[in-house]
Amino acid sequence: MLSLLARIIKTGTVTEQAPQVGSTDIEVTGENLKRAITRLYGGRSLRIRHVDAGSSNAEEYEMTALGNAYHDSERFGLSFVASPRHADILTVSGPVTRNMEHALRTAYDMTPEPRMVIAVGDGACTGGIWAGSYAVVGAVEKVIPVDAKIFGDPPSPLQILKGLLAAIEKART
């Protein structure tokens, strides 16, 4: 225990330097997003429920990265919640497989208004390389109305943030 503590103190921080506030792209986008959320509900808080409708999980890795110490999306007012009933935004990834079609519909049905659906990744936006397969329905908009799309296979966390920003800006106008 003590030797471990001593070692922690001796080693110090060896991870790469955290980005300076207001300098990098992430910070700028994040601050813009924070302002946009404030104007959207006057609530400065955006709860996201993510639905994996049969994705390759690449999108999920990137979304998880939003919460890590580097991106730290919590400080912009984003949070991921456990139930669609708690959510403001549904993010959907994957080319809606036939098995997940019902799940997606019910999740959308249970999200209280005002709500927004964002398709994340090429699979969700167009069906991607799976489009036309007998096992998938295709793009998310074939199942539920989609408000915005974030392209990329997978989109990086920064792209996701920018996509969220664009979607909120669009919803306000």
């Binding site: 019902h102 799940a103 019910t106 999740a107 049905d109 249970m110 209280p112």
Partner: peptide, 14 residues
């Protein structure tokens, strides 16, 4: 507040 009646949250399996 408007109340909308839905099914119980089932994670996709009825």
């Amino acid at each position: 507040t408007k109340i909308r009646i839905t099914d119980t949250w089932d994670c996709g399996a009825p």
